[in-house]
Design a protein around this nucleic acid. Structure first.
Lengths: 242, 242
DNA sequence: GCGTGCCAAATTGTATACAATATGGCGATT
DNA sequence: AATCGCCATATTGTATACAATTTGGCACGC
């Protein structure tokens, strides 16, 4: 077999960084984009030739993703992409709510004028994309706004934690697009916390962001399991997903 | 076809853990206990024979710990135990405060009577250990109490995130023992939030736990900055650490 | 016909061998 | 004598080979 190091993977060769680091990025993207669907098994050798790397760096990448919670490793049974468990997503949103509140508060305290202006620009863009009915663009801008707010909090630990939770939510959301009414309501919530942010009202911005997260949680969870009961008090048992 | 060995007993773990999984646990313990000091390099081969494993599982373990933030990997330069950065610890505490508040709130909503009773028992034990002047036992019980509260929140994501942050704080605290006055004050804070917890007062428990976390942060950060930036070797200054 | 025990194939877990890169020392040159 | 450049060494990054374990199937017995 000819191992051609110059072989270009379709998604891009991994050259500057180490192979396993690049493999982590590739695999994470594949999981978040849905290319690797939740619950699907992940045969090592198949991914090896798909990414153009050997088993060693690929396995190291899988361990990292397992630590992030995106895949699950079962000894001697292989790895599976972590299934979307409504219970778990509910739990994630519960923490996310607190993180959003914290981020909103800190962002108001620590953001620079330039950052606030950038936030305003993105918010206008969000409105334009809503008016244009461009859902994908809207959601991208939406994520950028929230990421921007978190960055303004000047807290790398918060930023990293937030990113991890956001990725799990993103996977769930990709399975559950919510309807027009929720979309409109989401935009009005953005109007709300942006008003608080403009006034540097830490308390209001935090609680409005938390409320926005809670509303999003309700919509996503409703779309996930249909019944959509918003009772956060769940039983302690973990439901095994199908 | 069913072999009875596959019984899933939560308290009866089969020692089927893979080598890299065990290596992760070993290394994490070594880092948290301070056996591997912050900033020290981590030569692979040396650890290999020390742990009795080959390089492959060890490297996988290092990747996992790097994802957790306990070690840093520099390409072709080896791994180092993540240094204690006061800035980072401050950031960690900032998030921790929000997590404690959330945990306290949820624990009041979802804890069982047995768990509340257990909490009371641990709290009494804490007092006894304070009266006995047994610092190590006190801090162990302290951690157990907080872990118990987080468990009562019935949120695995919160629990995992909390554990990660707690481990970083633990490393910092091992370098910085705080004084008698702070110790006494810490106990009174425990009295405070325990009173709220007993009454299932979610708001009070959350805010008091957050305040306790903030006070702890002040003490730890003060001790960290007092120690200076770098201590060459473990001087006998910290007599009762851990 | 159905259940049980064993066996073979496949896949993962581990170890070792090879290649690439960073580091420290040595010598030549100015 | 000091500095720059090169090279030897050591350590990490990667690939492949080997061992262990699970799983599905099959023959045998009831």
């Amino acid at each position: 077999m000819d191992i051609v190091k110059t072989a270009k993977a379709p998604a891009g060769p991994i050259r500057r960084e180490t192979l396993h680091h690049g493999a982590v990025a590739e695999l994470r993207a594949m999981i978040l984009s849905g290319e690797l669907r939740p619950g699907s098994r992940v045969p090592e050798v198949q991914l090896c030739e798909q990414l153009g790397v050997s088993r060693t760096p690929l396995r190291e990448a899988l361990r990292v993703l397992a630590a992030e919670g995106l895949v699950e490793l079962r000894p001697h049974r292989g790895a599976v992409v972590t299934p979307i468990d409504p219970k778990e997503i509910a739990a994630v949103f519960e923490v996310m709510e607190a993180l959003e509140a914290l981020a909103g508060d800190l962002a108001c305290r620590r953001g620079t004028p330039e950052e606030f202006a950038e936030l305003d620009r993105l918010h206008d863009q969000l409105h334009a994309q809503f008016d244009a009915g461009d859902r994908p663009a809207y959601f991208l801008t939406n994520r950028q706004i929230h990421a921007r707010i978190v960055a303004m909090a000047r807290n790398p630990s918060l930023e990293a934690t937030y990113a991890g939770f956001a990725s799990k939510i993103l996977r769930a959301r990709s399975l559950a697009n919510y309807d027009e009414e929720r979309w409109r309501h989401s935009l009005s919530e953005h109007d709300g916390f942006m008003a608080a942010v403009r006034q540097r009202d830490m308390a209001a911005a935090g609680s409005l962001l938390a409320a926005h997260s809670r509303q999003t949680a309700d919509a996503v969870l409703a779309a996930l399991n249909g019944c959509g009961s918003d009772s956060p008090a769940g039983a302690g048992r973990q439901a095994e997903s199908v």
